[in-house]
């Protein structure tokens, strides 16, 4: 049995209710350090809601979110980011009218030290930090392969590059755990292959990856463990081969056979 130390994130009986609707129903799971963990399930299963509960956008109605052994339930989004969880969004949420490099520099915000006075008077330490952050941002743009677009507005990038930029921005916060919400949505088969390679590269940086994905090829191809949600409930958990043949999973996706 694995000890608690192996787990970067543990969810204990997380439930989220919106009025009468139970969006996430008593979900418990744990993510091991350094793995690629996938969350799948039909539309409306509560996958993104679960992400929102982890990243502080929602406060769970009950249950606990534990990061590195520390209870972070109900922390504010910016606190969660500081503690080491970064995310991307299902419907890309970039800062449209900021350049790519500025988008990534905003991601560095939480790891920067400049105070109001430093910025106001452009003190030498602030200048040095700005220079360093710009270099780091460029490195990240290179890492995801869009360095040439550094000075373009995020809005003007093609769709696939916007997804990459969002990943670069999330990585800029130096996360220990990266949450990717449908990173391959709308991708061509070629782009999906490239994305899988990118996710593995992210893993090599020592970042644990938790992704929501609909595309089974992507999910089966890169993830080591999968949790399946349906109607907010966890219905299966395990390695891809096991989950693929689980009758409850097949039922959730294809409906009950008559």
């Amino acid at each position: 049995m694995s000890t608690l130390d192996d787990h970067i994130l543990v969810l204990n009986n997380v439930t989220k209710r919106f009025g009468g609707l139970v969006a996430v129903d008593d979900v418990s799971l744990s993510i091991k350090r350094g793995e690629i963990f996938a969350l799948i399930g039909p539309n409306g299963a509560g996958k993104t809601t679960l992400f929102n509960n982890v990243t502080g956008l929602f406060k769970p109605t009950s249950g606990h979110v534990i990061l590195n052994g520390k209870d972070i339930t109900g922390s504010k989004p910016h606190e969660v980011a500081r503690l080491g969880i970064a995310r991307t969004f299902q419907n890309i949420r970039l800062f449209d009218y900021m350049t790519c490099v500025d988008n990534v520099r905003v991601g560095r915000h939480v790891r920067m030290h400049a105070k109001l006075w430093d910025g106001l008077f452009k003190l030498p330490a602030e200048r040095r930090e700005e220079e360093r952050v710009t270099e780091e941002a460029m490195d990240l743009l290179r890492f995801v392969g869009i360095a040439r677009q550094a000075n373009q507005y995020a809005r003007n990038l093609p769709y696939g590059q916007q997804r990459r930029l969002e990943i670069a921005r999330a990585l800029a916060t130096e996360p220990k755990l990266l949450l990717l919400d449908e990173p391959a949505a709308g991708f061509t088969p070629q782009e999906k292959v490239e994305l899988m390679a990118l996710v593995r590269k992210i893993l090599d940086r020592g970042v644990t990856v938790w992704l929501i994905e609909h595309d089974m090829k992507v999910v089966m191809g890169i993830s080591e463990r999968i949790v399946v949600l349906d109607h907010g409930e966890k219905i299966a958990e395990g390695p891809p081969e096991e989950v693929r043949t689980d009758p409850r999973v097949i039922e959730a996706y294809l409906g009950k056979s008559a």
Partner: peptide
């Protein structure tokens, strides 16, 4: 100076998308 500082970028990020700004660690 402010516009080209950490704080200036945080303001712009909030103007563009408050939810994303918070998720990037900006205390809105």
């Amino acid at each position: 100076n402010l516009q080209r500082s950490r704080l200036g970028r945080a303001w712009m990020a909030i103007r563009e998308d408050e939810v994303a700004a918070a998720a990037m660690g900006i205390n809105t």
